[in-house]
Design a protein around this nucleic acid. Structure first.
Lengths: 162, 162
DNA sequence: GTAAATGCAAAACTTTTGCAACGTT
DNA sequence: AACGTTGCAAAAGTTTTGCATTTAC
């Protein structure tokens, strides 16, 4: 699915719901598909303003929800109090690995995990709609850094694993 | 691990960090291990007040973090804007399934999923600390309900799957 | 006695909402 | 012209923080 196709698909989605294609929605849509990064609502709001597209904060939030409902974006809850978004264009489904030191997010995919999730849901009589899998750990780069600081204070805590 | 043991372990944890065993911390600890439910900070605050243990909201939040750091509680982010907690006493690790209709949370565990997570982390050079896996779907009860309302309006949206 | 913890109220943050004005169809 | 959408500012909701006071050790 290329950019033009997905744009049409957005227009169709709006038409279908009898909603309007406003300037702001177009601007947000554009901006969101112009990055492959994960971003928060506030970050997007910042980008738009830096680029002198003065969309209000409220509209940013409203449109993000709209895009998630339409399946154009996915939201990723990192557990740090803000929701991140990413577009689905050219991404197949994947899960995330978050570095506890530097915050880096890596993507991974394992078909077998997907299947066992299906199985677990089936066993409980759940009809599965989606899932959210995040691994927390220390990335290769930060592990190296930590090792080279051997002997330095380390945080005492264990992490929650839920 | 029984209640007394875990209480001792809490005392040891505090001593180790040169932190104090206050009345409030004891009350919160007690209350938290008196339920097997998932609860939010606000809910816990409510319980404590209903039972005339007047611990301040700030202390509730501070102590919950402390208990998570110590590995006595785990936090579960349902993506609904508030963090839920559950104690680990008598619980082995498990993941969660959340019903999108009624909010019910079911627990499940699949050793194979755990192992493939390890493998995925290894492949990326991540040293894995914890993970969070939530399945979203419609539980058996709500599916039945939905089926019996066939023909009624349904919400249009798809869910995010990240 | 001293350092840590508490309570309070204020602040910080993200996200939502009510409503008048506006823009799309 | 009608009705959905926007912007604004206020509100809501959870969580954090500064600081004077209290408490555990």
């Amino acid at each position: 699915m290329n950019k033009v196709t997905i744009q049409r698909s957005f227009e169709a989605f709006l038409k279908d719901r009898e909603q309007k294609l406003t300037l702001q929605r177009r601007q947000i849509f554009e901006r969101v598909f112009a990055t492959h990064d994960h971003f928060s609502a506030e970050k997007l709001f910042g980008w738009l303003h830096a680029e002198h597209r003065n969309v209000s904060r409220a509209t940013v939030y409203r449109t993000l929800s709209l895009l998630v409902e339409g399946g154009f974006l996915e939201s990723l809850d990192t557990g740090q109090g803000e929701l991140l978004y990413e577009h689905i264009l050219g991404h197949r489904h994947h899960d995330h690995m978050v570095c506890l030191d530097c915050g880096k997010i890596e993507e991974f995919y394992d078909q077998r995990i997907e299947e066992f999730q299906e199985e677990a849901a089936r066993k409980k009589g759940f009809s599965l709609r989606s899932h959210n899998l995040r691994l927390f750990g220390v990335c290769a780069g930060c592990t190296k850094l930590r090792d080279s600081q051997e002997g330095t204070n380390r945080p005492a805590g264990q992490e929650s694993s839920t």
